[in-house]
Design a binder for these strands. Structure first.
Lengths: 351, 351
DNA sequence: CTGAAAGCGCTTACAG
DNA sequence: CTGAAAGCGCTTACAG
């Protein structure tokens, strides 16, 4: 509330009526004479009066909000989750704040700033270091849950997809399709996406891949696991380590991309080597984000349960608000296999 | 605020101290004895006390928020704008609500619900019918600006990109590259994206295309303007009318997509006809949204000034909040040509 | 139809 | 170190 802003009392004085009358007139109650209403309206307009939402909310007692703290680096990524959280919040009769954390900024500072904000709880998206967050939330008395699949050590109830099982499922599917030489792109930390850090999901998805191979009796080969390119060049990047592999004469049966995001570069790399998808090589991803539908051919992938994840975050928060103590553990939700052209057996003829 | 929730007074009673002491203890002020602090903490915990953000905000008087009302259909679309608005809001020391409007829902109802929300102003994104919105905002006394390029009739200050000039610029560029037979995809209302409705931007971008042709002395040909496909099939859609054109023996020099979103289907259609991009046909888009970087080859496009648009929305709202009366007109911002592989003259050889 | 008063749940001088 | 009181800006019985 800016200082010097006109209040109800100012309007009342200017209009020469009582506080209550101003309130009634401005809220369009029928039990005020037209003449008075008009006078009050004019006075309010003259003073540039605008009601204080805070005071109103306090008095009416019917306002409640939740907060989503979203790191810039995961905005696009978590957009469907944010959207689901917004819907769930609205359905619960609450409202949702979005607090951005800029790339240079610190989520802890953002949370500290929440002390003055009328919010009841915090959903933190994409911030891997949870300890400081938890301390800050405890300090200002706000329940908090995290949406994250990077953190190795948890200090908060944390929601994510079941990454290991999902990757295992996809690998099993590729094996069922008859593929044995399956390259896993994005598993090495050599050429890493900075924001992924040493994300847990990398390990988990790689582990799922290995589990499926082992279960099928296919030996794991280190050289089939490659890193990824620098995301700065999203539009033109090739996957260096995949290139080397292809140049060395190894032609994979299939490529499993650790994330759909990686698929455009993988497809470009295969295409540069005159390999056709899915006729020569099957390609699969993980996430089912927009890239999966844009690439040609459309990508078979494991769909993260974005909608469920967003809703679960709101539900957990509501339980905390009601006083329930949530365990500090991962709440994992199943990813779902979505089959598209990039892995179909009934492939088109070679181009 | 849930009913029956413990208040400061409850805690004070339980701890056998005064209100003020509870407040101090819970806020970690140093001027409370450790013993008292401990007792208060315990009482608060036992009662499940959590401070009322609303009361705190009212009392401290340092809270202010803006609201973004975002239609589901434009979520992904306006995500960078929303992000910029969030940053600008935070920089101004304010906070941002996100209020989703579900596909079946009505933005006016959402705004009506804002009467009880401590917000100072509203940014409406992607809602073309402004009249009801304006009325509702006036009724509850909230300043409002729109981010929209669909509405033909304005009732609100409205921000958008300079669509006509942008399309003209792109067409000029294509002409400069030596192209004359330039197909415009997305300009017909025959095969329309439902959510685009009769969007103004469609007319504007088409008009820009025509202006550039006229200026270059290239006759406008109706049959070179085609509709687009149903977005439900995003991953596999071909552009029907473009197909017919190609089948009829017309090979364009270039294809200008009304939106980047259309480009994947256009590229698929050209590819199905063994036309290589950019060697055989140049392809350009509009928006510079993510699809532009994912398609292969990466797309030359007009970049919408998302960042500026989001920031301008916040700035205009702040001016309204300060009492300035904004004109009901379009605030247009320049789009910028981004040149990528899809139109390069120095094209690769044919595949 | 209108006004004075109480109160929403906090924080913060002010006085011990 | 602690408490009683005032007050943030509204709304809403309660009484005229």
């Amino acid at each position: 509330m800016a200082t010097g802003r006109a209040t109800l009392a100012d309007v009342a004085r200017a209009a020469g009526v009582g506080l209550a009358t101003v309130s009634r007139a401005l809220n369009g109650r029928p039990d005020v004479s037209e003449e008075t209403t008009e006078r009050v309206r004019r006075a309010a307009a003259a003073l540039g009066y605008r009601p204080s939402g805070t005071a109103r909310a306090l008095r009416r007692g019917s306002f409640a909000a939740l907060s989503a703290v979203v790191h810039d680096q995961v905005w696009g990524w978590w957009e469907p989750v944010l959207r689901a959280a917004a819907s769930a919040t609205a359905e619960a009769g609450m409202h949702l704040f979005v607090h951005p954390v800029t790339s240079g900024g610190d989520a802890t500072d953002v949370i500290a700033g929440l002390a003055n904000v009328p919010t009841e709880g915090v959903i933190v998206m994409g911030v891997p270091h949870q300890e400081a967050l938890r301390e800050e939330c405890t300090r200002i008395g706000l329940p908090v849950v995290a949406l994250d699949d990077s953190a190795h050590t948890l200090h908060l109830p944390t929601i994510s997809a079941r990454n290991r099982a999902g990757a295992r499922r996809m690998t099993e599917y590729l094996i069922q399709q008859g593929h044995r030489r399956i390259v896993f792109v994005g598993g090495s930390t050599d050429e890493f996406v900075p924001s992924w850090g040493e994300g847990l999901f990398v390990e988990e998805r790689l582990a799922g891949y290995r589990e499926a191979l082992a279960a099928a009796g296919i030996p794991f080969r280190d050289e089939l696991v490659t890193g990824w390119a620098d995301p700065e060049d999203e539009s033109t990047a090739l996957v260096g380590q995949l290139e080397e592999l292809l140049r060395s004469g190894v032609t994979p049966d299939a490529v499993f991309c650790i994330a759909d995001l990686v698929a455009p570069a993988v497809l470009r790399t295969l295409s540069a080597h005159r390999l056709s998808v899915p006729a020569d090589v099957a390609v699969a991803g993980f996430d089912d984000e927009r890239a999966a539908l844009i690439v040609d051919p459309p990508l078979t992938t494991m769909r993260q349960p974005y909608e469920e994840m967003g809703r679960l975050a709101v539900e957990l928060l509501q339980r905390e608000i009601r006083g329930e103590a949530l365990p500090v553990r991962r709440f994992e939700l199943d990813a779902e296999l979505v089959e598209r052209e990039s892995t179909r057996r009934a492939a088109n003829s070679r181009v």
